[in-house]
Structures are given as structure tokens and as C-alpha cells.
């Protein structure tokens, strides 16, 4: 089943074109990786999917579960099952992780016409899923990301992913800033969340993460477009040859 379809997407920020005609289709259960040099528009793509204000879609379409999501508010997209693990997660003053997740999960449940979770069950689930990414339960009573180390913030993103059970999860450089052990934990966490009805779009600079995740497809983004797509071998090739290989006119190679 087709989950996400992006057609000829062009996005501008403050009048400057950043994404310049991008196509991508993701089916259920697939893991897609996007690689590419700094500043080519990978995070921009993630933000546009999530509906961040200030990103102007100049042309093209994005369909999520058959719906034009460009018409939906960011919170509606989230409730439809789109999740973004942020490259730079923010700190939320005064709101504990547990309370934040309770509010979010119940909003999503309300949208799907489900009863709010029972307090006891919810607490159990919170602890289990936190353990999945190696966060002990004391983090649940701390304010969201406040005083968390870089690595803890990234793990917290995957914890939230686990709680919200999305249909499509976009991971924006979740592996950056993680030490080798944390990388393993996060990758194993993500792997355990893989399901036939859950797809992933993983933005990364490193082959390392892909070793653990084994993506079905690897895309390389360059100057606002996907210039080359392939299987997981493409990531090795890139790692070996570097991005200059693309700059030297070898793009379009399939």
C-alpha cells in the first residue's frame, strides 16, 4: 500500500528555492534512507512533511494515506500518523516528559475515536518504551528535554516515536551526536518498532546507522533534488567515493 507520495515538490524559504523538484514514494513497511551533503534540503523536506510554518510549497503535491496533507494543520498530520524525530529537539519548560506524552497520546487516541488510556496501563507503557531506548524512568518526571544531553534528547525522540505508534516516522539525523553504544541502542529500538504497517524515512550522513537498519532504498539528495536512488549498496558506494563523485557529473546513474 502506498503511504507517502511526493510529486515534483518545490519548496521555498523566504523566497529562496530550497527543494527543487523532488519525487519520492514510500510503501507500507518500507525503510527509506536519504543521504546527502550539508544544506541540500534534507531537514527542509522533513519540516515540509510535518507542516512547519514558514516553508512555502511553490509547486507539487504530497499525499499521505491518500490525503493531500498540505491542507492539514501540523497537529492533524501528527494525528494522522506522521511522526518527525527532530534533528534538534527543543526543551519544553514546565512540562514533564510523562505529562507531555500523556497529552499527546490521548490527543491521537481522541482523533481515532479511542478512549483515553487508563492511568496505570499508561504508566506501564511509558516505562517499557523508555527502557526500549535505555532511558530510565527518572527521565519521565523531568521536563521535556530540559538539561538532557545531546544523546539523551535523540533517544527521547525515539521513545516518543514508540509511544505515538505512527504510520510513517521521519528520523532527521537521529544518529548524529550518539556514541557507539547509544547508536546501537537507538538502532535496535527502531528495529524493534519496525512493522509491516509502519514505514520509515531515515535522514543520515553515516553508513553506520544503515548497517543496523538495513534500508530497502537509499536516496541521495543534492541541491534540492534526489539525484540517485538505489538499494543499500548505494550507501557503501557513497561512503567509499564521497559526494564529489556526484558533483563530477555521475548523477542520474541507476
Amino acid at each position: 500500500m502506498e503511504i507517502l507520495k511526493i510529486e515534483n515538490l518545490k519548496v521555498a524559504i523566504d523566497g529562496k528555492l530550497i527543494i527543487k523538484g523532488l519525487n519520492l514514494t514510500i510503501n507500507s513497511g518500507e525503510v527509506h534512507a536519504i543521504m546527502g551533503p550539508n544544506g541540500t534540503g534534507k531537514s527542509t523536506l522533513a519540516y515540509v512533511l510535518a507542516g512547519k510554518p514558514g516553508y512555502e510549497v511553490v509547486e507539487g503535491e504530497i499525499t499521505f494515506l491518500g490525503k493531500n496533507i498540505l491542507e492539514l494543520e501540523p497537529e492533524e498530520r501528527a494525528k494522522e500518523g506522521l511522526f518527525l524525530a527532530f534533528q534538534y529537539p527543543v526543551e519544553i519548560p514546565g512540562v514533564t516528559n510523562a505529562n507531555f506524552m500523556k497529552t499527546a497520546v490521548n490527543e491521537v487516541r481522541k482523533y481515532r475515536n479511542l478512549e483515553p488510556l487508563d492511568a496505570f496501563d499508561f504508566l506501564q507503557t511509558l516505562k517499557e518504551r523508555a527502557a526500549l531506548v535505555g532511558l530510565d524512568s527518572s527521565y519521565l518526571n523531568r521536563n521535556v528535554n530540559e538539561g538532557f544531553s545531546g544523546g539523551e534528547k535523540k533517544r527521547n525522540e525515539i521513545f516518543q516515536l514508540a509511544m505515538l505508534e505512527p504510520i510513517l516516522a521521519v528520523l532527521d539525523e537521529t544518529d548524529s551526536g550518539l556514541d557507539i553504544d547509544a547508536l546501537k541502542i537507538v538502532a535496535n529500538g527502531v528495529n524493534s518498532l519496525r512493522k509491516p504497517d509502519r514505514s520509515f524515512l531515515v535522514i543520515t550522513h553515516y553508513q553506520r546507522l544503515l548497517n543496523y537498519l538495513t534500508p530497502d532504498f537509499v536516496h541521495v539528495m543534492y541541491d534540492g533534488k534526489i539525484v540517485i536512488s538505489g538499494g543499500k549498496e548505494l550507501a557503501y558506494e557513497l561512503e567509499a567515493k564521497g559526494y564529489d563523485w556526484l558533483k563530477n557529473g555521475n548523477n542520474g546513474l541507476k
Binding site: 510554518p53 497537529e75 501528527a78 529537539p89 527543543v90 519544553i92 507531555f100 490527543e107
Partner: peptide, 15 residues
């Protein structure tokens, strides 16, 4: 309470 924080909350389904 910056727009970044509000967007983060929106992305988790919270208005």
C-alpha cells in the same frame, strides 16, 4: 514559549 516549541508540540498532535 517560542514558535519552535509550539511546532514541536503540534508535531506530537497537541494544538
Amino acid at each position: 514559549i517560542s514558535d519552535e516549541i509550539l511546532f514541536y508540540c503540534n508535531q506530537r498532535g497537541i494544538s
